[in-house]
Amino acid sequence: MSETPLLVARNIHKTYGRFVALAGVDMALARGERRALIGPNGAGKTTLVSVIGGQQPGGAGGTVLFDGRDISGATPQAIARLGIGRTFQISRTFRKLTVLENMLAALLGNGGGAFALSARRLRELRAPALAMLREVGLAEFAREPAEAISHGDRKRLEFGMVLATRPRLLLLDEPTAGMGLAERSALMEMMVRHIAERDITLLFVEHDIDIVFRFADVITVMARGKVFAEGTPAEIAADRAVQDIYLGARH
């Protein structure tokens, strides 16, 4: 692991009218780290992820550095091309396109050639697209419209699409939301396996505490738009203040 963090967020603040969503968040992600972002609803987790990914209309205050480069206020496409991929809380795929076309679109967006008029580029990308679908277990659905596959499979598809863009940092916003217990674990294992194989740094928002403690190296706890606590799973588990505000322990 290198000394310089891959991502640094400094004094990030964001307001919606009078509501303060982020009130000066500082965070640094080491290369190869798996960081979980937890906290009660309204803590600002998704807002922070969106600020990093460039999906905040109107931008936000503060500075975001990615690999030493200031990406504050950059467009989502510019941030994606730099190597930051993300999934959304409600998975966003191209539902009327087939599963294969979704993957082709992901490879095109990342690899260029999106403005080509010849179908040759699509034929060239077919094999890598099918290979990526096999990696996330969706090859058998290649010809199905994305809207016809299950919620869990759409989560897999969205993850595979982002993985196809070869990110160095992956932002997963509630990757297991809306899924059953067994399915959650299997999905997260699959995701973390691919992330580890590719040496991708991970920041994920998650409500399932079992998933968080099982897969995160470091946990950041947010509350009311601020970082409330930060540490290893063992440190967070032992933090009584965190238990009070989030884990619901009684003492």
Binding site: Q55, Q77, F94
Partner: peptide, 20 residues
């Protein structure tokens, strides 16, 4: 490819932007 890009952006511009 441009047709696929048009369809992708037409359906889900935020997803498309997040793919580059």
């Amino acid at each position: 490819p441009i047709g696929l890009a048009i369809r992708a952006v037409g359906e889900e511009p935020h997803r498309a932007a997040a793919l580059g």
